[in-house]
Design a protein around this nucleic acid. Structure first.
Lengths: 350, 350
DNA sequence: CTGAAAGCGCTAACAC
DNA sequence: GTGTTAGCGCTTTCAG
């Protein structure tokens, strides 16, 4: 025993399996890839040889010839504010939303034996790296969830003709597939519910108004309220964070102390708003009814738990992955958008 | 123009660059891989040719010969309770902690051009898939963060001699590298602070007692309090979730109404405990001082913001990635554990 | 210091 | 049906 560590038992190759089964590499390859035209008897022999040798196909070799990696990138993208102390990605993943997206993507991909490569793209440099990475053939395509409007990455992806699917409609029209939820419908659900609960003096806290989702939730809410006979709905703009929800609620209450209902564009802001209402002596839902949006974990973590608009994030994420795979399989696949319907979840806040 | 879509401009290969530069493939390969022994003039020519052709190395081809993928897996592992409705990974990522780990890992890896493959391993099947995936050479190794003690995956990894590093000390001793924080020191910090604040009737809410971290935090806290002259510290066991914090606080308060201080083993449970205290008429910190653990986003989201024990999760995660790369580079690298020191972060709750 | 040549393990024509 | 063979794009001895 003079060698350092021979125990690295160079994993078996197709050749080894072929020899063990007494057939050619091609035949083994055929049964592995599920191609018919192989005698059932031989198939069985081969399968056994595979089991005996403990063979696993080498992905690099396969990729080299198929020009497919069997991997896709899951990109979390934003319009880079780099606060050294608390990096972008650190904050981003604190939002339970991304966990749900990741979950949905993995849920769809995993049964297919493929796993997402996690990438963040918050700066120009990071975006360039993402593009280069994909061009190297590290992944066949990308699913992308942006935290900000005006994200330059979708455009870059399209320009590089890399298959990609977005989680939400891009702010600028770009020929790229995406999944989204019917924000306006969701906002209408909230409005109808508030009115049904007898609320007359209703306000709203919106998300950042440069992102389409925020715009749609706001305009959808106002239109629905108008249809109920309430043409003027005061609004304070937030930015989807807990702190901004707190601040916005503070302001809304100061400007409209008579408020008896509020629609808040996401649950995290609503979670921030609740203590503010309490602090100002408003009971929820008795004095002020609150409806959130997302049905995120913040909704159940809030006290009282939030009545909110649920969109099927996991399903949407799964669909996004499915769409991407379709694009990867057929580069001529037409650009598509798929819109999901939201639903009202009634808890205690309204 | 009869072709369907010729515009797929087969990306340039080494060969193309070599031709453009008037040298051999070997030479181009050398300059790309930063091997000296190349005439500076020629180096320059090659660099230019690379730029002109827009060449990017094909990773599959490279992997095939180097037997390295340049990828690593980031595995989130737990002891599988599969609740169909709300999948494991969905819940897991709702915990901001995992976002911080992901962030730290990416922060270290990205400058090195490598990106983690995200995998979940909550069932026996999923674990088998993870092992097979790594054996296929899809990744050179894995960093692993478990949500539960008794996770079988570390053992499987070791048995398959796959390079891996854990985020925390495994419940069973296993020859595998890990990073961790000095939980006992952190707990002592909390105890000292509570005592310094003049608290005499102190209790604690622990994490699940089958995980080493929970044990250490509890025993560390009790030992430190004993040293201060308080040998009996009542404890209620939680499971690190917000709801369990709520329930545990409820019970602790019922059993020890005279409580004036409580150490809660993570911020999320503390976030759940705060409203319970308030509901029972206790002001925080005046009547009851609360110290959490983690300095997670729950600490700042709580009202009042939590005094807590911070551990440098991002740094630890980065170190975990660094360690893994060391193991990948040298399979004979000895098993190591690296322990980080926590610190006290004083906010308003104590 | 540079080039020629031999594969890495696999798939996909193409023969038989 | 099955085997033969030619590479996929790259790194790496080995000559020169």
């Amino acid at each position: 025993m003079s060698e350092g560590r021979p125990p690295v038992p160079a994993s078996p190759t197709l050749e080894d399996v072929a020899r063990a089964a007494g057939v050619s590499r091609a035949t083994v390859s055929r049964v592995i890839n599920g191609i018919r035209n192989v005698d059932p008897m031989i198939q069985e022999t081969v399968r056994q040889a595979i089991a005996e040798t403990g063979y696993v196909p080498n992905r690099a070799a396969r990729s080299l010839v198929t020009r497919r990696t069997g991997a896709i990138a899951l990109i979390v993208s934003g319009a880079g504010e780099e606060s050294g102390e608390n990096p972008f990605h650190s904050q981003v993943f604190a939002d339970p939303f991304f966990g749900r997206v990741a979950s949905g993507v993995v849920g769809f991909l995993r049964p297919r034996g493929i796993h997402p490569i996690l990438m963040f793209a918050e700066t120009a440099e990071a975006r360039a790296q993402v593009i280069a990475y994909l061009r190297q053939g590290n992944a066949d395509g990308a699913v992308l969830v942006s935290t900000q409007a005006q994200d330059p990455l979708p455009r870059l992806l399209v320009d590089a003709s890399l298959p990609a699917v977005l989680f939400a409609r891009p702010a600028e029209p770009i020929p790229i597939s995406y999944v989204d939820v019917a924000h306006r419908t969701g906002a209408k659900l909230a409005a109808d519910h508030l009115v049904a609960r007898g609320r007359r003096r209703v306000g709203t806290i919106s998300g950042p108004l440069d992102v389409p989702a925020s715009q749609d939730r706001l305009s959808g809410f106002r239109d629905a309220m108008a249809a109920h006979g309430y043409p003027y709905i005061p609004c304070v703009e937030g930015n989807f964070t807990l702190n901004s929800g707190e601040a916005a609620m503070e302001r809304l209450l100061a400007e409209h102390p008579g408020l008896d209902g509020v629609f808040i564009a996401n649950d995290l802001m609503a979670q921030g708003a609740l203590p503010v209402l309490r602090h100002h002596g408003r009971r929820v839902p008795d004095d002020v009814a609150v409806v959130g949006f997302d049905d995120s974990s913040a909704a159940t973590a809030s006290r009282p738990p939030l009545t909110t608009i649920r969109h099927p994030v996991e399903d949407m994420a799964a669909e996004m992955a499915r769409l991407l795979l379709a694009h990867v399989d057929d580069l001529d696949q037409p650009v598509t958008s798929i819109i999901f319907e939201p639903s009202l979840v009634i808890r205690d806040s309204a």
